[in-house]
Design a protein around this nucleic acid. Structure first.
Lengths: 136, 136
DNA sequence: TTTACTGCAAATACTTTGCAAGCCC
DNA sequence: GGGCTTGCAAAGTATTTGCAGTAAA
């Protein structure tokens, strides 16, 4: 399963470029990152890369199902690998800390929404706000 | 319990102004609204009110615990009365529809997070993404 | 009168878009 | 070589801030 995504790109008429590889690597190594942070990470290797390329690339990678994003509050969205997405974000409204917990915690919620409302939950996009154990 | 919030304002050294009353009324009648939408609603009564006043007022009303906001996706946040907040938002990633369901559906999740992670969930700020019954 | 509040305009943050040059295939 | 991609700059959308005039108490 070496370079599947590259082939997938080409199969769809897109091209494999250094920028796209770098963005995917940055998302991988950062685990969680805003477009700005990803841009900074990419620029450690290739200085010329523009922020608008980051936005365009993230949109493309998301369309391909390689990365996902979540809204963790006011600011810019956070991107992460779709493959690493098996967790739910807990955001502390007090200190801003983000904790990852297994999606298993939302099983009951998912079942209820499916059963009672016919709603198919995207658990990987779930963010829960509240107070972490340090802040109460 | 007529004018408690006005007294609360004054008690804290703030002032009761027509703008603040109008914003609260707009949030009440809209049920859910972005700052922009609230501004438009307010301006149906008082044309001169500026969008920056809306932002400042919403921040104040939230600090007082009268209104709350949620992030329903990319765009601007949605404000609603704290008193009306007893629901969870289901956002369809396909058609964009927002459905309100009782917070009760998240009981299990809340309990698990409290028990296993010491995390105190703010259910009223909970937004669940996925596909609604019409979109799959 | 005192000083919080507002409107206005400018600044800031985040994201998108147009276009000519560049590079993948 | 064709056309998808990129960098750059400019425009667009969302929000914040400074300041001087206005109004609540």
């Amino acid at each position: 399963m070496a370079d599947t995504w590259q082939e997938e790109l080409r199969a769809r008429g897109y091209r494999v470029t250094p920028q796209r590889q770098l963005v995917l690597e940055a998302v991988t190594s950062l685990e969680h990152g805003t477009p700005e942070e990803i841009c900074t990470e990419v620029q450690r290797t290739a200085r010329g890369v523009n922020i608008s390329t980051i936005y365009r690339t993230l949109e493309l990678l998301e369309e391909l199902g390689l990365v996902k994003h979540t809204h963790l509050g006011h600011g810019p969205p956070t991107y992460h690998l779709a493959a690493d997405a098996d967790h739910v974000h807990l955001v502390c409204q007090e200190c801003g800390t983000v904790t990852d917990v297994p999606t298993r915690v939302a099983e009951g919620l998912v079942d209820t929404l499916t059963r009672d409302f016919g709603f198919e939950t995207d658990v990987h996009h779930l963010t829960v706000y509240g107070r972490c154990s340090n802040c109460h």
